[in-house]
């Protein structure tokens, strides 16, 4: 697993860790029940505060990506793929709703909006 921390981005470091571990889990790079590095050793290896890594792990556990075995450490939790997908779809819907609202306010037509989505899709996929 690789984790890249960027100090210059506006994103808080604990969030960067959260995102990267989360994607490693959902992509399957980290297997179910695989052990994660301890909070402390991760902090020291990344040269950041222990409190930061603790927070990232707490949020991962809260959101159901990992679980803690007392005295042993943190491990990858089995993901409900279907549930994840549904959650993801819901989030996309919310973001699209905002995009539509902004389009309406700024007089962007439905067709223009669809074109933007098409272009963006080509860039990203």
């Amino acid at each position: 697993m690789n984790i890249f921390i960027r100090n210059t981005s506006g994103q808080p470091i604990y969030e960067q860790i959260y995102e990267q571990i989360k994607s490693s889990i959902t992509s399957g790079e980290l297997k179910v029940d695989e052990a994660l590095p301890s909070i402390r050793s991760l902090a020291k290896d990344l040269r950041i505060s222990v409190i930061t890594t603790k927070r990232a792990y707490e949020e991962l556990e809260r959101d159901g990506f990992i679980y803690t075995a007392p005295g042993k450490g943190c491990f990858v939790k089995k993901q409900n793929v279907q549930l994840r997908r549904e959650e993801g779809l819901k989030k996309i819907e919310e973001h699209l709703k905002i995009a539509c609202e902004l389009a309406k306010v700024n007089n962007v037509s439905k067709e223009e909006l669809a074109e933007m989505l098409e272009l963006m899709g080509e860039e990203w996929y």
Partner: peptide, 8 residues
């Protein structure tokens, strides 16, 4: 303070 909380 905790450094992260401080920066936030």
């Amino acid at each position: 303070e905790e450094k992260d909380a401080l920066l936030d």
